[in-house]
């Protein structure tokens, strides 16, 4: 199957073929929406910001020189818009103490988690990731789901490589900590 690269559609848009942008929207909309959702958390707001990210990308497409991937460039736009949005709204995050979880707890949580039904696992995991702070939730998604390198995450978020690695380490522990709490809730209900 002949799959055209982003650069083909970008050149088309630059040459005045606006319809070519539709292919870029179709290709990247899910990941853009996911990035925004990880940070903003409210579906309606996320939809609006994700749309704004595409419109901003369209308006600035002549500035895209192709030094990085188009996906990295547009993810950065979506990230910046989302961060500005939550700064305006002043959302507060619940601090999660990851020091409380022991290695044994991690093992038990894992064992209990994999025994759950797939739909249940999806639901619990989504809620758990949304309980993390915005940057941690986003980094987890980019690194594990989209398999984006630490270098690219650095480019998108402007966080240093060492900071990203620390956040990944902390987010893993925090997620287990949240899952452990959720597991206790499931079994006590």
């Amino acid at each position: 199957m002949n799959v055209k690269k982003d650069s083909f559609f970008i050149n088309e848009v630059k040459n005045g073929n606006i319809d070519a942008f539709k292919f870029l929207v179709e290709k990247h909309k899910d990941m853009i929406y996911t990035i925004v959702m990880r940070i903003v958390r409210i579906r309606e707001d996320a939809e609006e910001i994700a749309q704004d990210a595409f419109i901003k990308a369209f308006q600035s497409i002549d500035l895209f020189e192709g030094k990085s991937e188009f996906s990295t460039w547009i993810y950065k736009i979506a990230y910046n818009l989302s961060i500005s949005h939550i700064r305006k709204k002043k959302y507060k995050n619940i601090e999660i103490d990851d020091n409380l979880i022991s290695d044994n707890d991690i093992f038990e949580t894992y064992n209990d988690f994999i025994k759950l039904e797939e739909s249940e696992r999806n639901r619990i995991l989504k809620n758990a990731v949304n309980s993390l702070n915005e940057d941690d939730a986003l980094i987890i998604t980019l690194f594990y789901i989209k398999e984006i390198s630490v270098n690219e995450i650095e480019e998108i978020t402007n966080l240093s490589k060492s900071n990203i690695k620390i956040k990944l380490f902390r987010a893993r522990k925090q997620l287990f900590s949240i899952l452990k709490d959720k597991k206790e809730l499931i079994y006590t209900v």
């Binding site: 909309k29 899910d30 990941m31 929406y33 996911t34 959702m37 996320a46 939809e47 994700a50 894992y110 988690f113 994999i114 797939e118 696992r121 999806n122 995991l125 989504k126 990731v129 987890i140 998604t141 594990y144 789901i145 989209k146 997620l175 899952l179």
Partner: peptide, 10 residues
């Protein structure tokens, strides 16, 4: 565990 995390769809 994280394999079960799905990408969101607008």
């Amino acid at each position: 565990i994280i394999k079960d995390l799905k990408i969101e769809t607008p």
